[in-house]
């Protein structure tokens, strides 16, 4: 399935919804959304990933880029990550630096 990536900004929170297959060819689209969110000086980044079927390491590098661009104190939430994608996140230790949740409700 083709990759799609949409950003919405709500005050200081950025929501990015990822769907389809995230490989090195399309990772620049994700990175562009992260830069847009970073420019808006958000304090939290929420990634909705339940429709993301595949993620290569290029996606991981985009996340590291987000942390470095937005600052270490910006929390990154990952919502509804599929099991196979989660395995990659865990194998590379990225689960230590993000908050993985089943569902997300803005409190």
């Amino acid at each position: 399935m083709a990759f799609t990536c949409t950003l919405t900004l709500n005050n200081e929170v950025a929501h990015i919804t990822l769907a389809g297959e995230l490989d090195a060819a399309v990772a620049p689209q994700f990175r562009a959304k992260i830069e847009e969110a970073a420019a808006a000086k958000v304090t939290r980044l929420v990634l909705f990933m339940s429709e993301l079927e595949y993620m290569a390491s290029a996606g991981l590098r985009s996340l590291a880029f987000a942390k470095q661009k937005m600052g270490a104190n910006v929390d990154i939430y990952m919502v509804g990550v599929q099991e196979t994608v989660a395995e990659t996140i865990t194998m590379t230790g990225f689960h230590n630096s993000v908050i993985m949740v089943e569902s997300y409700d803005e409190a």
Binding site: S57, A64, A72, M91, T92, G93, S97
Partner: peptide, 24 residues
């Protein structure tokens, strides 16, 4: 192999992850 997999992202050197995932 990447040696800093347990470190926080902002302190990591993000290279070699692709080869690591492939071989593992």
């Amino acid at each position: 192999e990447p040696e800093d997999l347990d470190r926080p992202l902002e302190e990591r050197n993000i290279g070699g992850l692709g080869v690591y995932l492939a071989l593992k």
